[in-house]
């Protein structure tokens, strides 16, 4: 078995399973801690608040956006860019089609890929350089923040370096970094990709019970 076959085959399977089970374990673990039932008479629906809280926090409030626009643009640029790259880059669709789903869809043209990748990279770089150059960020950041940023950066970078698709080695390096990323994910702060639903939802539910319209 070649290196490429290994990182795309057995190692990928292990990484994917670790990712799915680890993430599930962690989310369930958080929920299972449980909380006391709130018996104060409610003014509104907690369940509706849970959903509303999740949606409301997608949209920054104007009064804060004037102070935080850089972070908002960087954050959205990176996250949206990453999602588009993951699900609409032609080689990714082919891989998902081949190995997991058994069906594919239309990928992006090359110019769109470059554009989206540039937006994603710009966003990630802005987020990270802000982390090293703002006293607030320097104080509150720990090694996990940096490690997660860099690992994600490497995933994106190796992917783009393999864009010519003429060397198996480059594809294999990309796959290897992805495998590492998938295994690291459930144990790390990258889990915010799932836990944000809980935190926004919990706050939203509290607000919902109080009948607050935020």
């Amino acid at each position: 078995m070649g290196f490429l076959d290994f990182v795309e085959g057995p190692l990928f399977v292990i990484a994917a399973i670790t990712f799915v089970l680890g993430a599930l374990w962690r989310v369930i673990g958080i929920i299972r801690i449980g909380r006391k039932k709130d018996i104060s008479p409610p003014k509104g629906s907690a369940a509706a608040g849970f959903i509303k809280g999740n949606l409301r926090h997608f949209f920054p409030r104007g009064i804060f956006a004037r102070r935080t626009w850089l972070h908002i643009i960087g954050g959205y640029g990176f996250h949206i860019g990453l999602f588009v790259l993951v699900f609409f880059a032609a080689p990714h669709i082919a891989f998902l089609d081949d190995r997991i789903l058994g069906f594919g869809w239309q990928g992006m043209p090359r110019w769109a890929f470059v554009l989206v990748a540039d937006v994603a990279f710009a966003g990630l770089i802005v987020l990270w350089v802000r982390r090293i150059s703002d006293p607030v960020m320097r104080l509150i950041s720990d090694w996990e923040d940096h490690f997660g940023s860099w690992l994600t950066f490497l995933v994106m970078l190796t992917g783009c370096l393999a864009m010519q698709q003429s060397h198996d080695v480059l594809r294999a390096v990309h796959m290897l970094v992805i495998d590492v990323w998938l295994i690291y994910f459930p144990f790390s702060r990258l889990m915010h990709a799932f836990t944000f639903v809980l935190s926004r939802g919990n706050t939203g539910a509290t607000y919902g019970r109080k009948g607050m319209n935020l």
Partner: peptide, 22 residues
């Protein structure tokens, strides 16, 4: 006092520093 709610907060914080601005 770290119930599922507080736990979800600790788990979700990505140290983005926005809160300082508020």
């Amino acid at each position: 006092h770290t119930d599922a709610e507080a736990a979800s907060f600790f788990e979700a914080c990505v140290h983005c520093g926005e809160c300082a601005q508020a």
